[in-house]
Nucleic acid binder design. Structure first.
Length: 570
RNA sequence: UGGGGUGUAGCCAAGCGGUAAGGCAAGGGACUUUGGCUCCCUCAUCGGAGGUUCGAAUCCUUCCACCCCAGCCA
């Protein structure tokens, strides 16, 4: 019998390890409570999805709770419109915050009272320095800061001044409330950080009630504490702020304060995640809007056809650590293919049609071919697809002079038409002017119809097709990476100039096909429905789609080993 | 230059002193009425250099690289 433990422990990320330890020690009475705290100043993207999945996922795994909280402490940057979209996106991803939808703005009075406490205890003061002077006084990496001349005002004077700030007696930028910590701290965040500033602007939730607003560093720990948060998960750039986070809570003598834990934000290759660049693309007209299917926004991914399951699975599998990393977008593609392979009905669509005429097939015959909806799902059943003398096949499925290893259709060659017959190419005709192949002729072998004994015969290749008579026209939008290769770390930062950024844009990030043909069963497809166009990829009905004008978005192509063979032979 | 972080394969990522998990990508093969799916195989000595130890990715020393911080943004 084994003396050693042979249980293979599922690896847990470092945050779960901290939670495990805390629960073991009965810290917070064993409670686990997290929160996802977006600022309502933009649309959510897949980087936020990582954080959402992390926070809600951790709560779920540990029998805890996760709040949705809007960190709306800056009325000059925030807006109502974002709140709705964020709520919709988090819900769409499949998470539930129960009745715990909170707003930082709901705590403004309490935060103000806590600020009064700090002032009374001599831990905060009103400073009259201008923004420029505060900057000067802060010092630099190598030089300590200088103390503000207003640093030693009495608590009484500070109280009066702070109250007057609240009452609107002073103009924007003329006074702030500062924490009295240490102007010579090597951590610049501790050099008497600003706690409150004056912003005479209407707030989307509190209206004109306030004209002073708390800074993130002051508000966030309080919000967490008020809500009973135990583990406050945020991204790496806040590591330097942790001492301040802790300072606020301990200066107010709060017992069992929440703890801030930082992890590395998600970077994805071949796309952009920074708010600034996303906005640049939308406002500059480089994309059609925040839900452009090329963007990594949640709304863009949704419109593109990504499923919440695939996104959650992706977020789960990329892991959580503190190393700056750039995840290859191919991994995201893998996750959506994996999900859709199980779920998406197969259907035939010809993106670039080439006419195929079966010379020995009766002109007026229509056969209803039985087609399996999904070989990966026995429950999916089957459907009938009409087969006629004149068909369309994919232009690239015929080659006059086939390259090596090409086993699709070519003069004299045989292929099977999926769920139908084996055909043999007898001839083809060219357009007299362009020289382009205009139609291909073939003969079929009646005994080889799928399901019949003669169908046993094997040929090298199987092609998809649509009936010329019954096919529906469709617009198909082929999406590709937003950016050309940018998987270098420096490309992920927000620093470079716009010219460099524009040069990285993939000029072929979308290609629109207007003459595609799809099988008639797609007539009633509705926006959001997803299909596998056999041998081509996964597609989703776009919101622009109408009954008389079908529009499909390519979510992702199928893996294509033929394409690889071609590429490697060059 | 001060402070805070991080360095394990092309990309993520386990590992916590006992002889490098897993996934993606890549390459090879089997199967196939999707060149899809599925299955099988291949693919690293752990940023560098010293040291401690029977034994080091794991401990110590030192060096190097990269990321973040000088908003009254979050």
């Amino acid at each position: 019998m084994p003396t050693k433990e042979i249980i293979n422990k599922e690896p847990v990320n470092f945050i779960q390890a901290i939670i495990d330890e805390d629960r073991k020690n009965n810290k917070y009475g064993g409670r686990v409570h997290l929160r996802f705290p977006p600022e309502p100043n933009g649309y959510l993207h897949i980087g936020h999805a990582k954080s959402i999945c992390l926070n809600f996922g951790l709560a779920e795994k540990n029998n805890g709770l996760c709040n949705l909280r809007f960190d709306d402490t800056n009325p000059s940057k925030e807006d109502r419109e974002y709140i709705e979209s964020i709520i919709q996106d988090v819900r769409w991803l499949g998470f539930d915050w129960g009745d715990r939808l909170y707003y930082a703005s709901d705590y403004f009075e309490r935060m103000y009272q806590d600020a009064l406490t700090l002032i009374k205890e001599g831990k905060a003061y009103v400073c009259d320095l201008s923004p420029e002077e505060i900057k000067e006084y802060r010092g630099s990496f190598t030089e300590p800061g200088k103390e503000s001349p207003y640093r030693n005002r009495s608590p009484e004077e500070n109280l009066t001044l702070f109250q007057q700030m609240r009452e609107g007696k002073f103009e924007d930028g003329t006074r702030v409330l500062r924490a009295k910590i240490d102007m010579s701290s090597p951590n610049l965040n501790m050099r008497d950080p600003v706690l409150y500033r004056i912003i005479k602007k209407s707030h989307h939730r509190t209206g004109a009630k306030w004209c002073i607003y708390p800074m993130y560093d002051y508000a966030h720990p309080l919000e967490d504490y008020y809500e009973g948060i135990t583990h406050s998960v945020c991204t790496l750039e806040f590591e330097d702020h942790r001492p301040l986070y802790d300072w606020v809570l301990s200066s107010l003598h709060f017992p069992e304060p929440p703890q801030q834990i930082e992890f590395a934000r998600l970077n994805l290759s071949n796309t952009v995640m920074s708010k600034r660049k996303l906005r640049f693309l939308v406002e500059g007209g480089y994309v059609s809007g925040w839900d452009d299917p090329r963007l990594p926004t949640i709304s863009g991914l949704r419109r593109r056809g990504y499923t919440p399951e695939a996104i959650r699975n992706f977020c789960e599998r990329i892991g959580v650590a503190k190393t700056n990393s750039v995840v290859d977008i191919r991994f995201l593609e893998h996750c959506i293919r994996e999900d859709l392979n199980k779920k998406a009905p197969r259907v035939m669509a010809v993106l670039n049609p080439l006419k195929l005429i079966i010379d020995n097939y009766p002109a007026d015959l229509i056969e209803e071919m039985d087609c399996e909806n999904n070989p990966e799902d026995a429950e999916a059943g089957s459907r009938k697809v009409p087969f006629t003398k004149e068909l369309y096949i994919e232009r690239e499925d015929f080659h006059e002079q086939p390259p090596k290893k090409y086993f699709r259709l070519s003069p004299g060659g045989e292929v099977r038409l999926k769920n139908a017959y084996i055909i043999k190419c007898t001839n083809f005709v060219r357009d007299e002017i362009t020289g382009e192949v205009k139609e291909v002729h073939c003969i079929y072998a009646p005994e080889t119809r799928s399901g019949r004994p003669g169908a046993e015969r094997r040929v090298k290749s199987t092609l998809h097709w649509v009936s010329a008579k019954f096919a529906l026209k469709a617009e198909i939008r082929l999406y590709d990476y937003l950016l050309l290769d940018n998987n270098k770390e420096e490309d992920q930062t927000d620093q470079e100039d716009d010219h460099y950024f524009i040069k990285q844009l993939n000029p072929k990030s979308v290609e629109i096909l207007n003459d595609s043909l799809v099988e008639p069963s797609l007539k009633s497809a509705v926006a959001g429905e997803k299909f596998q166009f056999m041998r081509k990829g996964y597609f989703c009905v776009d919101t622009d789609s109408r009954a008389d004008h079908l529009v499909f978005n390519r979510i992702v192509s199928l893996r294509d080993s033929w394409e690889k063979i071609m590429k490697n032979s060059q």
